[in-house]
Computed example of a mutant assay.
Amino acid sequence: MLEWLKQKAGAHLDAGKAVAVLGGDHSTPLGYIHALAERHEEFGILQIDAHCDLRPAYEGFEYSHASIMYNALQLPQVKKLVQVGIRDFCQQEAELAERSNGRIIMFPERFLREELYGGKSWRKECKKIIAQLPQKVYISFDIDGLDPKLCPGTGTPVPGGLEFEEALYLIRMVVRSGREIIGCDLNEVAPGDTDWNGIVGARLLYQLCNWMAVSQGRIAARDMKKVEDEE
């Protein structure tokens, strides 16, 4: 699958398309990240997720959803991994992040909430997150990065998580900072008893694709000048 997606995504990129990958579980976009690594000298990954996904292997399998970011970091073109909303990780993953010399930056949910409850604004927290990112950014969005009330059908829900508008505000702030979103994925959206999971997932995908297009100069955003003036 890695090689298949690398080839398919690469062909679309070479045709001048902006590409978004839909999972499946979070292991799916690795081939796309490989394709981007062949076309960009360096970039960072903004990962919105409940989990770190930094395990070398999970139950003996090296290409599972629990290893996607560990595998992505094997690519030297991935200069930075910035993780947002994390609230479930193991000791091995924590030690890997600590040994990364700043290549892995984690913004756990508990840390973000403590800052907000202490009077800091979400805007200020977003600026801290974005300051860790290089000019070119790949967004990897696991739906369980959101509060489980927004994605009750996902496979590994964890209490806590971002609100829908908090996630979109962060994405918009990435674009407003002048950074380019070179690609994105959305994973782990699973059906439930109603259409709710699909509704949230579809709206999130719509926003991801549109803001990626804005960052690449493919479409204009009406609110961009207003925000620049505020800055």
Rank of each mutant, 00 (worst) to 15 (best):
W196K: 12
G192Y: 05
R176H: 14
G201I: 04
D193S: 13
L170H: 02
R203Y: 09
L186H: 10
N197V: 04
W196D: 00
D195Q: 14
E188F: 07
V175K: 12
A167W: 05
T194P: 02
R203T: 11
C184D: 00
E163H: 13
V175Q: 07
N187G: 11
V158F: 00
E163S: 12
W196C: 03
A167N: 09
V189S: 07
D195V: 11
V200I: 09
N197R: 06
G160C: 08
E180I: 14
A190H: 12
G198P: 03
V175H: 01
V174R: 09
D195R: 14
T194Y: 02
W196N: 00
G198A: 05
I199S: 10
D193I: 11
L162P: 05
G183L: 08
G160Q: 07
I171H: 00
A202W: 02
T194H: 04
I181Q: 07
G178A: 11
E165M: 13
V174M: 02
L162V: 01
P159H: 07
V189Y: 10
D193N: 13
P191H: 04
I171V: 15
G192V: 04
V189L: 11
G192T: 09
G192R: 12
D193W: 10
W196E: 03
L162K: 04
N187V: 15
D185I: 09
G198K: 03
V189R: 11
A202N: 06
P191R: 07
T194G: 05
Y169I: 13
E166T: 02
D185P: 07
E163G: 15
N197E: 07
L170Q: 06
R172L: 08
R203C: 08
S177W: 10
R179D: 00
L170Y: 01
I182Q: 02
R203K: 15
V189K: 14
G160W: 05
A190V: 15
G160M: 13
I182E: 01
G178S: 12
R179L: 08
R176I: 15
E165G: 00
I182L: 04
G183P: 02
A167S: 09
F164A: 07
E163Y: 11
V158R: 12
G192A: 04
R203I: 03
A167V: 09
V200Y: 03
E166D: 04
S177T: 08
W196P: 05
S177K: 10
I181G: 10
V158M: 12
A202L: 08
E166C: 04
W196H: 15
R172S: 11
L170V: 02
G198F: 10
R179M: 13
A202P: 05
I182Y: 01
R203G: 13
L170G: 07
I199W: 11
V158E: 11
G178N: 06
V200Q: 03
N197I: 01
E188N: 14
Y169P: 00
G201R: 05
G183E: 02
G161P: 03
G192F: 03
D193L: 13
W196I: 10
V175C: 08
P159L: 00
R203V: 04
R179C: 04
E163C: 08
I182G: 05
D193A: 14
G178T: 10
V174K: 10
E188Y: 08
S177L: 09
G161E: 02
G178H: 12
R176F: 14
D185A: 09
E180V: 14
G192P: 04
P159I: 02
I182V: 11
I182T: 06
I182H: 03
I181H: 01
G161K: 12
